[in-house]
Amino acid sequence: MMKNKNGFTLVELMVTIVVAAILLAIGVPALTTVYEQVRVNNNIEKIHDLFAFARNQAVSYGATVNVCPFASATSCGTSTDWSGGIRVYITDATNTDHELRAIDSFNGQDKVKASAISMTFSADGLASGGNIIYCPNGKASNSQSVLISTSGLVSYGSNGNAC
């Protein structure tokens, strides 16, 4: 007499694998878009918070605070490409820079462009003004921006700007 064994047949297993593969093929591109949007939101919030921090430090210290792209451990970049990271520093009376905060480089596929090589906040909170645009994978359609007005107001800008 044969005993009934519990388990799956090879056909049932193959059908399950095919269905899972189809679901993954449909779902992965959608998840990539979601991941990209979350990455943009997180990084644009970091940039916004960094500029708000820089303005607050300028007012607190009563000194000029500079924000610029990372070029090396001791200097700022010389282009409007801020993809390598952002550095906030203050210069003391002896002309020595003191780094207050920094953001390391962003995702290698993303572009971060600014309207200026560097931005400054004066002791009264006024800024040189400008904007920063974050483009995931270089796509303007999903880009977000941060605006820094000359009055020192740091705000979120419009979406969909070209890099």
Rank of each mutant, 00 (worst) to 15 (best):
H98W: 05
V59T: 14
V34N: 07
H48T: 12
C68E: 04
R55H: 11
I44C: 12
D110C: 02
V65I: 13
P69F: 10
D49G: 14
T94P: 00
D81F: 04
F106V: 06
I103D: 11
G85I: 01
T74C: 03
N43A: 06
P29Y: 04
T78L: 07
S72H: 02
V67N: 00
Q37C: 09
V88D: 01
T91G: 00
I86G: 00
L100P: 11
N66S: 13
T33K: 12
I44F: 05
Q57T: 13
P29G: 06
D110L: 02
G85D: 02
A71Y: 13
N56H: 15
D92Q: 04
N42E: 10
Q37R: 12
G62M: 03
A63V: 15
V38D: 07
D97G: 06
A58S: 14
T96W: 00
S75C: 01
G84R: 03
P69R: 05
G108I: 10
S79L: 06
R55V: 08
C68I: 00
W82M: 09
K111P: 10
A71D: 12
K46I: 14
G108C: 09
S105Y: 08
T64C: 08
H98E: 10
V59A: 15
P29H: 04
C76T: 02
D110K: 01
C76Q: 01
C76S: 02
L31I: 10
C76R: 00
I47H: 05
S72K: 03
A58D: 03
D92H: 00
N107C: 08
I44Y: 07
E45A: 12
G108P: 15
T32M: 09
D49A: 15
V67A: 01
I90K: 10
V67E: 00
G108D: 15
N95F: 01
R55E: 08
G62K: 05
I44P: 12
W82D: 08
A93S: 08
I103L: 15
E99L: 10
T64M: 14
G85Y: 04
S83E: 01
S79M: 05
R101E: 15
T32H: 09
E36W: 05
D81L: 05
G62H: 03
Y89S: 10
V88R: 02
V65F: 00
F51C: 07
I103Y: 11
N107L: 07
